[in-house]
Design a protein around this nucleic acid. Structure first.
Lengths: 207, 207
DNA sequence: CGGTATCCAAGCCGATACTG
DNA sequence: CAGTATCGGCTTGGATACCG
């Protein structure tokens, strides 16, 4: 066997799908583009069976999208090539958010971050340069706003301009607007004005 | 039958994949974004069995990505929402072209056009505004170069600046560089200088 | 924690045949 | 031309159990 089935089509799109077109593959990448994760984290975030997850990770590794780094704990991370999917995932998410189909199910934290990137409005951050630390429970994200762009990653920035502590439900309200925004769930340390401004940098998808 | 399986994940990416994540789905969209096609055309371009193609088209229609228009001949076309996948497909193709896996198989004409869009170099067309008609056998494409962007579609422009008649192999050499470019296979009518310039607007992918 | 092994049901793929 | 119908063989995916 030549490994997983291929479209045997030299078109770039088909070759991309040979690499990440199988079920779960792109969602695994979604979980990895903001930073490395462990097998069990992926399993929990995706709700996929270990057997499928294991197989997909193997295929993604063989395709050169994902790499395994064993540094104490076993970690999976995207390769440089795989990281090239980040902007595509954000755009795809923006497109999918306009789907007429109903929204159902749980949202992973990394999915939420990509949704934020997708609803980020460049014009509202034209002259802004801020480094945020975002805390959701135990999870830490660095969000750098610069030159009208938002860059998110799983990391704890050394000296953020503002630290925003909140929960997934609140943030989901920001990115999707399907929940009421309750100010009480937001705590800001550092520059409070910058912290409040954060929540105005995003706009909900049209429909 | 009940709708196809869903990730039941409110993330935009997952919802996008609910719509176009099944095998063949995105390649069908690839064949449709430049203009409507008939069932048999799709079958020939993709090499999928009528069985599978029929089912996918039905699912894409149910999802709101594709619509059937019966005007004399039965045609499938993308909806406005589905057309939003066009730039994403181009980017995905650009990403997939950098795959380390070998290129194999036949290339459909529409795939070739998207590959051209993917390798189009904006800087080389900064001050250019041209409407090309591209002829490959019986197929006609309009290619509008304007404001550093390239817009392709299946249509015969009324008064193009230049008409380029060539074949798929030649054009494939332009987009992929895996074949020698033979000038003899190119015929230009209209503004000859503009016609020759066309071939310099693209650059092959890195690896 | 980080996976493999096993089982089973469902789906896909291709071929072929058939209809309007 | 534009599909639908049916069938067989095979692969996948999901659930669960298990192991270093």
């Amino acid at each position: 066997m030549t490994g997983p089935r291929s479209y045997a089509d030299p078109c770039g799109i088909a070759r991309a799908l040979d690499a990440v077109g199988e079920r779960w593959a792109l969602l695994i990448v979604r979980e990895l583009v903001l930073g490395p994760r462990r097998f069990t984290d992926l399993r929990a975030a995706l709700g996929a069976s270990p057997n499928v997850l294991s197989q997909r990770l193997g295929e993604l590794e063989a395709a050169g999208v994902v790499r395994q780094r064993t540094v104490g704990a076993a970690l999976y991370e995207v390769t440089d090539w795989g990281r090239g999917l980040h902007p595509i995932l954000v755009e795809l998410g923006r497109w999918g958010a306009r789907s007429p189909a109903p929204r159902r199910g749980e949202l992973s934290v990394d999915a939420l971050m990509l949704a934020l990137e997708a609803t980020f409005v460049a014009e509202r951050a034209a002259d802004l340069r801020v480094l945020y630390e975002l805390r959701l429970g135990e999870e830490r994200f660095a969000l750098l706003v610069d030159a009208g762009r938002l860059e998110a990653s799983r990391s704890t920035p050394p000296s953020p301009d503002a630290i925003i502590t909140t929960d997934a439900a609140t943030l989901r309200a920001v990115a999707f607007g399907d929940l009421k925004l309750a100010n009480s769930e937001i705590q800001i340390r550092g520059d409070a004005a910058l912290g409040r401004r954060f929540f105005k940098l995003f706009s909900r998808p049209a429909a």
